[in-house]
């Protein structure tokens, strides 16, 4: 079994109102050296080892469901033989 970790984030050009609100809260806590906060999404996918082309399958899932290519971008890492 492999573990695929997928990170989805807004493209840089996209305004992230939630990240802005979180940043304000962080500043309110006194951590004024935090300049910017971007919020994203994280997914863990457990994948069978018998999958033939894991990259194309993961890319397809990300492009058609996990991320919206209009406004988001994603990256992933594969940890082989994760149990």
């Amino acid at each position: 079994m492999s573990l695929v970790k997928v990170y989805v984030t807004y493209k840089e050009s996209i305004l992230d109102p939630q990240g802005e609100a979180i940043k304000k809260a962080i500043h309110g806590m006194g951590h004024t050296s935090i300049n910017d906060v971007r919020m994203g999404k994280y997914f863990e996918l457990n994948v069978d080892n018998n999958i033939s082309d894991i990259d194309s399958e993961i890319n397809l899932i990300c492009d058609s469901l996990l991320a919206n290519p209009n406004m988001e971008t994603y990256r992933y890492e594969i940890l082989e033989d994760a149990e």
């Binding site: 996209i14 305004l15 109102p17 939630q18 919206n68 209009n70 406004m71």
Partner: peptide
């Protein structure tokens, strides 16, 4: 309709949150 690609673009969180 934007998610299924029948219309272009996307709907994001309101700017004022």
């Amino acid at each position: 309709l934007t998610e299924i690609g029948l219309l272009p673009g996307a709907l994001m969180r309101n700017r004022q949150n």
